[in-house]
Simulated assay, not measured.
Amino acid sequence: MIPLVLDDAAVFPPGNLPLAEAVVAHRRHRESWYADLVGPLVVPAAALAALAGSGPLDVAVVVPDAEGAAAALDAAPDGIRIVGLEVTDASVAGLRAAIGEPAGVTVHVEIPRDDRRDAVIADLAGTSYLAKLRTGGVRADLYPDEAELAATVQALVAAGVPFKATAGLHHALRNTDPDTGFEQHGFLNLLAATDARDAEAMAAVLAERAAAPDVPSTSLLRSIGTCSITEPIDELTALGLLELAR
């Protein structure tokens, strides 16, 4: 079993599955042979009210800031359990003031791709909060190249900060998207990079596309957000990293 959870981001681009359909599909995933690899359903804060009557259901909620995090915790309908918060733009100090360290809730703070990066990582070190990396998106400039991503991963590893990664991780291995031409990171490459000795070695692992890298048994990369659960499961099975339960 790989040391990685697949957070179900089916309602986000490019999947864009309608919320009601995403809930039904998520329940199927949670009842499948690969259920241990399936994390919560990830939803925007604006979708919380629409989940009324859909419980019991574990969700992670994407919020813009510390105030949004506090509001989301107060807005969960009956039967909807918030097990994660993914905060786009907030300081660690601001989050502590707004929500503290809520029991049973994993809080991810997005790492900016600018000169604030190292300070945010330093603030996260030694707290219960985790980091969140964006590794792609709907435009080519939203994809950090392997050198940039390696530098961020090295900083997280050096600080001992666990993290999740999301956006653009559509395949297990590094690839070029045939429709957009975007260079996409592989989630197995990223997982393996956390075990490399330095940023240069990490970048080399991230760039490898010919063969599956050696996957560590433990990693600071705890989960990835994916708009498809079945595609990574199928690829991991084809690579011999998962055994199909029969």
Rank of each mutant, 00 (worst) to 15 (best):
M1N: 14
I2V: 14
P3N: 12
L4M: 01
V5M: 14
L6V: 09
D7T: 07
D8L: 09
F12W: 00
P14T: 10
P14R: 06
P18G: 08
L19R: 04
L19D: 01
A22I: 03
A22P: 02
A25M: 12
A25T: 12
H26E: 10
H26V: 04
R27I: 09
R27E: 09
R30M: 13
S32T: 06
L37E: 02
L37M: 11
G39L: 03
G39R: 04
P40T: 02
L41K: 00
L41N: 02
A45G: 08
L48N: 07
A49D: 14
A50T: 11
A50H: 10
A52D: 13
A52N: 11
S54W: 11
G55N: 01
L57T: 03
V59W: 00
V61F: 04
V62S: 00
V62N: 00
V62K: 01
E67H: 15
G68V: 08
A69V: 03
A71H: 09
P77D: 08
D78G: 14
R81H: 12
R81V: 10
V83T: 12
V87Y: 00
V87Q: 00
D89R: 06
S91L: 10
A93N: 13
A93S: 14
G94P: 05
L95E: 04
R96T: 15
A97E: 15
E101F: 13
E101C: 15
G104E: 08
V105T: 11
V105F: 07
T106W: 03
V107G: 02
H108Y: 07
V109A: 05
I111D: 00
D114P: 04
D115G: 13
D115K: 10
D115V: 09
R116S: 07
R117G: 03
V120T: 12
T127I: 08
T127E: 08
L130N: 05
L130Y: 09
L130M: 14
K132D: 11
K132I: 05
K132W: 03
K132Q: 11
L133V: 10
T135L: 05
R139G: 07
D141W: 12
Y143P: 01
D145E: 10
E146T: 11
E146N: 09
E148W: 03
A151Y: 06
T152Y: 00
V153K: 00
V153P: 04
V157S: 09
A159Y: 05
P162D: 07
A167R: 02
H170G: 01
H170I: 03
H171E: 09
L173H: 02
L173P: 00
D179L: 15
T180S: 15
G181Q: 07
E183W: 13
G186M: 06
F187D: 02
L188K: 05
L188A: 11
A199T: 11
A199N: 06
E200N: 12
M202R: 15
V205E: 09
L206E: 02
L206D: 03
R209Q: 15
R209N: 14
R209I: 01
A210N: 15
A211S: 14
A212P: 06
P213I: 06
V215E: 05
S217I: 08
T218C: 13
S223M: 03
S223P: 02
S228L: 04
T230I: 12
P232C: 08
E235N: 07
E235W: 05
E235P: 01
L236K: 05
L239R: 10
L242W: 04
L244H: 15
A245H: 14
A245F: 08
R246N: 15
